[in-house]
Simulated scan of single mutants.
Amino acid sequence: MKTLVLKYLANEISEEELVSLKIWLKKPENQASFKEFIKSNQELDLAFRQIDSEKAYRRILEETLEKESVIRKIYIPILKYAAVIILLLATTFLIYTNVEVVRNTKTDAKTDMPPQSQITLELGDGSVEVLEDYNNKTISNKIGSAVVVKQEKDKLKYESVGAKDIELTYNKLTVPFGKRFEIELSDGTVIQLNAGTILKYPVTFSDPNSRDVYLEGEAFFSVQKNPEHPFIVHTKNMNVRVLGTKFNVSSYENEDTTSTVLLEGSVKVLRPNENDNLDVGTIISPNQQAAIQYGELSVEEVDVEKYIAWTQGILYFDNDRFADIVKELERHYNVKILNKYQELNSVRYTGTFQYKTISQVLEVFKRNTQFEYKLNNELIIIEPSL
């Protein structure tokens, strides 16, 4: 629900969301949660003023309860009561920060940039097609004897055909940094691929036991239900077994954590060596995240919107370390960021960005945490302010 509070303060909330916020705030326990959320963040201006959560609550409650169906403009004095800074650059940015005191911080692992800058599709015969996201075309095999798939701008669509007696043939779709793409598999499953992602999948699901795909990177799955043929997403550190549901899987090579976040339905999360044993694994429910880090599996309740915002082109940070934000910025904008200001890695931010350049995003961070940056083509160097 804190997402709705942020949207309300940013004047980005819809009428339906505003009604939901009004109903939510009527409950005393939710009023307490709201005040705790405000207290957990600091207003990031030069004075680092303390937050008056009571004033913030009363102001928002008054505004919310007075008019149910009118979206109002919120001015800066009101926002200061709510402990946020709103920076308008055509749309609203929300930035909060908390600073961890970390000594002897080690340099985070470097991100390896994909060598190609174009979306490519490798067919089963080894031929490679370059996909421009504004094209509509039919893609055939190397000798042109059979249609493999149709491209509809930024989406590939495989036709549903009878799987019996068809040889299992895999295609590989590679989406580089700075781009996103969508694919509809032959069973009707729709997958959105984030920047820096590779997906290997069958042209036709001819395996009689399961539907298997292989992921490196991040993707959002809307799996077509088929109880007789479970859908399995294989990653380096985690496998996800489903019948039909919607979920997000993140498994980047330069990240320490592989995770699955469930939007609806249910999924079973397994370690790679557990896939053939149906008696093991962990089942998660909607609004839960299963994560494997350094071999340890954990499950927790999460705000799903944070993990699927990328499907709408939104950068969504929620108390995230700058070191982790850098990795996401590199993927989103197809740039290399060299951070020479190591203390900045442990600063935490909350905020959302959409339709912004990398310079605009860094300027917002810069207004609240003093540092300098230089942009040289696709290389950004961050240094402490003098």
Score class of each variant (00 low, 15 high):
Thr235Trp: 02
Val240Gly: 05
Ile284Thr: 01
Thr189Asn: 04
Asn237His: 11
Glu216Pro: 03
Pro286Gly: 09
Lys268Gln: 14
Ser266Pro: 00
Ile283Arg: 03
Val203Phe: 05
Lys172Phe: 07
Thr245Tyr: 07
Pro227Leu: 13
Phe181Ser: 01
Glu216Thr: 15
Leu263Gly: 09
Ser186Cys: 00
Arg180Asp: 14
Val240Tyr: 02
Pro230Ala: 00
Pro286Ile: 04
Lys172Asn: 14
Thr174Ile: 14
Asp212Gln: 09
Gln224Thr: 15
Lys179Glu: 13
Val261Asp: 01
Thr174Ser: 13
Pro208Phe: 00
Pro227Ser: 12
Ser210Cys: 09
Arg271Ile: 02
Gln192Asp: 13
Lys236Asp: 07
Val203Pro: 00
Pro230Met: 02
Val269Asp: 02
Pro227Arg: 10
Glu184Tyr: 03
Val261Leu: 01
Pro230Cys: 02
Ser222Met: 13
Ile198Glu: 14
Asn226Met: 09
Val233Lys: 06
Gln224Glu: 15
Ser210His: 12
Leu215Ala: 12
Leu168Val: 01
Gln192Pro: 00
Tyr201Ile: 04
Ser206Cys: 02
Leu263Phe: 11
Thr258Trp: 04
Ile183Asp: 04
Thr174Cys: 08
Phe220Trp: 14
Leu185Thr: 10
Thr282Ser: 07
Thr258Tyr: 08
Gln224Ala: 15
Glu182Ala: 14
Ser186His: 01
Asn194Lys: 05
Phe221Pro: 07
Tyr170Gly: 02
Gln192Gly: 09
Ile232Thr: 12
Thr258Asn: 10
Val242Ser: 13
